[in-house]
Design a protein around this nucleic acid. Structure first.
Lengths: 304, 304
DNA sequence: TATGATAATCGGAAATACCAATTAAAAATA
DNA sequence: TATTTTTAATTGGTATTTCCGATTATCATA
């Protein structure tokens, strides 16, 4: 049986894949360029296959090389986890935890969440990162993040998830408009193009439309906002109505406005909130405890 | 950041855990005893924790050591998989696949299965192993086996599963008894203590009792058999009736007997057949293709 | 008390990992 | 076009690590 590749060489390969440049990758690994170069050659020899196509000046990862990178990532991160685990004397709630959250959830949970985690697991080092669903999924794949807090349904690619709970949508309008619209909401009473939503990079626009059965309605305004807070300001300026998730209202996003929240049409006008992680992780237990903490903060907790 | 442990030292630890003896473990790894000894010490230093308690003469793995062994196993096997994968130029249906099957399934699928896999994936090296559910689960944990074909429901511990299909139970009686019993079966027409089952090491006894709603019936005979073929012989000798899964009947287990198969009472008198694997595996795609092949051989295929 | 088995330790030899300097080739710039 | 810069591979030498055989220390047991 041939010898296993060394973790060192695998980490060289990962750095090279990330930097796409031998010098920068070598610097990243704190070794000389020649060391990294021969490390890669060594690896190719051991694996008995071509990982990168040399182009005399530059290079390109082969298809096989890309796949080896994927697998190497899992091995390296499992090894890092083993190291942390052992150094923490087996305490799984210790060390860094890199959590990615989408912008329509983050501001309404991170305060309470980090406070609670800090209390219960003082050695856990929560590192938050706010980004769009697509970017977060990419960074999860990279190994740059450990878990993601997303709104579902969503294509989570090869990953696994727990559904933590549900977050109802409310139609938010100026109080002077509330009576005209009624409750539950009758969209026909709203002027055309008077519903404002987030730009489509945010999944919330789609979720709200689907959950509230508003597909292709002429009621939607083509102008889109980039944050829930902007939407609230637009509604407060009587430009129209909008959908705001319950968790934002619970955190007083409507304070100091003249807005009211109405229950939209549709039995279950809500989005699901889920925690997403790589199927190859070996930190399920850690993630699970975090999942429980997050679920307790949601308007409707559906975690087992 | 501290240095990652080397795969070599991790494999020394695994060998030591398996052999529980430095000399044998060293032989296993093809290194000297001193090398293995210092490898372990080295590892403890790097991980900054005690993995084994030295007792001046012998030793014992600490709780933390046991857990590190678990995690190390995953890392080593992921590395071996990477090696195989790369050496096979990325062909996931290549190299050894160690499949464990329980005795009440094995004889009725392995013939067709190995033939079909051989045709479709000639480079796949299927290594079969027949054992009880409990032993198989233990060997899966060990890394001694890759996947298990089991009857469900069953506590599969921390593992993951796919349900491949369903296998109905039939009540098998001598043809001279068939008319008395009727169809669907009226158990009251059977004499007391006339139903024979497998010994309780086999999960099938429990599954049959549950599926056919026979709990604690006085109809059961306390004498138990060790194989389905014995049960068939006993029924053929008019000692009583028994339950036989459809897949066995499909493979002509009743040939050259005077037995008939009757539909038992109960809407869904059947067992589920599932494929079980470690959650940390990185060979899901390979396993999935095997799952599809197995599902095609079952009486009722329920795999997506 | 001797014997055998065990794991740790020690010293030296072999293998390797690493670096700095150099080379070679292409790209960017003058 | 000539020069400079950037890039990865190669080379040769050094430092480090790994490994082995021999030895030691400890215990169980004959």
């Amino acid at each position: 049986m041939s010898k296993l590749p060394s973790l060192k060489n695998l980490s060289y390969l990962l750095a090279l894949h990330q930097e796409q440049n031998f010098n920068r990758a070598a610097a990243e690994c704190n070794v000389s360029q020649s060391t990294l170069s021969s490390g890669i050659q060594n690896l190719e020899e051991q694996l008995n296959c071509q990982l990168i196509e040399r182009d005399h000046k530059s290079f390109l990862f082969t298809a096989l090389g890309e796949e080896v990178v994927e697998k190497a990532r899992d091995i390296i991160s499992a090894s890092e986890e083993l190291l942390h685990y052992a150094q923490g004397q087996g305490n799984i709630m210790e060390g860094p935890l890199r959590l990615g959250i989408i912008p329509t959830i983050a501001p309404f949970v991170i305060g309470e969440l980090s406070k609670n985690l800090q209390n219960k697991f003082p050695k856990l080092l929560l590192q938050l990162s706010e980004d769009t669903t697509q970017n977060l999924l990419h960074r999860l794949r990279n190994g740059e993040l450990d878990i993601l807090l997303l709104a579902l349904p969503m294509d989570i690619q090869g990953n696994q998830k727990w559904v933590l709970g549900r977050d109802p949508f409310k139609l938010v309008v100026h109080k002077e408009l509330a009576e005209t619209v009624g409750e539950p909401v009758d969209y026909d009473k709203l002027p055309d193009r008077s519903i404002f939503l987030l730009e489509k990079e945010h999944c919330m626009a789609g979720h709200a439309v689907a959950a509230c059965q508003l597909t292709d309605s002429i009621k939607m305004n083509p102008f889109t906002a980039t944050s829930l807070h902007s939407l609230v300001q637009m509604a407060d300026a009587r430009l129209g109505a909008t959908f705001i998730p319950q968790m934002a209202i619970d955190r007083d996003i409507l304070e100091n406005t003249d807005l009211v929240a109405l229950k939209p049409t549709g039995q279950e006008a809500s989005r699901d909130i889920g925690l997403v992680y790589r199927p190859t992780t070996s930190r399920r237990q850690t993630f699970r405890k975090v999942a429980e903490e997050i679920a307790r903060l949601l308007p409707i907790n559906t975690l087992n």
